[in-house]
Design a binder for these strands. Sequence first.
DNA 1: ATGGTAGGTATCCTA
Length: 277
Amino acid sequence: MRLRVTTWNVNSIRLRLDQLALVVERVRPDVLCLQETKVEDARFPFDAVRGMGFQHVFVHGQKTWHGVATLSRLPLSGCEAIRWCNVEDCRHAVCRLPGELELHNLYIPAGGDVPDPEVNPRFRHKLEMLEALAAWFEARRRQAERVILVGDLNVAPLPTDVWNHRALLDVVSHTPVEVEALERLQRSLPFVDAVRTKIPPEEKVFTWWSYRARDWRRSNRGRRLDHIWLSPDLAPYLVFVRIDDWVRDLERPSDHVPVTAELDLPDSWFGDAAVRS
DNA sequence: ATGGTAGGTATCCTA
C-alpha cells in the first residue's frame, strides 16, 4: 500500500487555489497537509479541495493568521485540533488514517526577529511550544507507533539546512537554542527525519526562500524549515522524498515549497481497503 | 550593514 504524504506552507489557501490544484496534479499526494491557510473554517474552500479529489478534510483555521488543514483521499478519523501554550492559535491538527497511522500536521511559530526569549515573546512562544510538544510525545512514547509528523517547524536544524551556517547562527530559525529545542522534540519518540535519510547531510537542502530576494534561485539563500518525520517503525517503509522547488517559480508563489514522502506500507495493515490499490 | 517582499486586513501586524 503506497501512501504519499505532502506538507506545504501555502501562505493563504484562498489566494493559492490554482497552484494547489497544479501541485496536486503533478505530485499526486494521497494526503496533503497545509499550513498558514489564513482562513476561518466557515470560509474554507471545501468545494475546491473536494474537486481536487480530497473527500476527507479536517480544518483548524482562524482569521488572518496561522491555520492548518489536512486533505486526504483516504478516510480520516479521530481528528482533533490541539492548542498549545494557552493561546488560541491554530497550529496543530491530528488525524488517524487507515492502517492505524497517526498523522500530525504542525505549524510552529516563526518566532519574530530577536532570538532572545527574555525580550521577544514570539521567540519565547516558539521555544515553549517545541518544549511542550516534546514533553507530550515523551509521555506517549510507549504507544508511539505508526506516527507521521509533518509541517512547517520553522527551524533549520543542520548546518546544511541553511545557505550559510555561520551567518545564520544568530538568525531566528537556526540559533542553537531553537535547534536544541527541535532536537529534543525529535528525540521524544524518537522521530526519523525522512528527508535526511534520503539526502545525505552534507548536501544543502532548502524548502523556503525569502520573498525579499531579487532572484531567489540565483542567490539561493534558502532554509529547510518544512519537515517530514516518521516514528522508527515506519522508517523502513520510506521509498522516496521529493522537494518541488519549481513551485517557488510560479506567479505569486508561497515562500515555501511542498515536501513529499512516499511510504510502501504492508498491505496487511489495511485489510480490505488495500485491495483496491 | 542594511533593507529588501508578501498576505490579510483595514493602516499595520506577522512572516
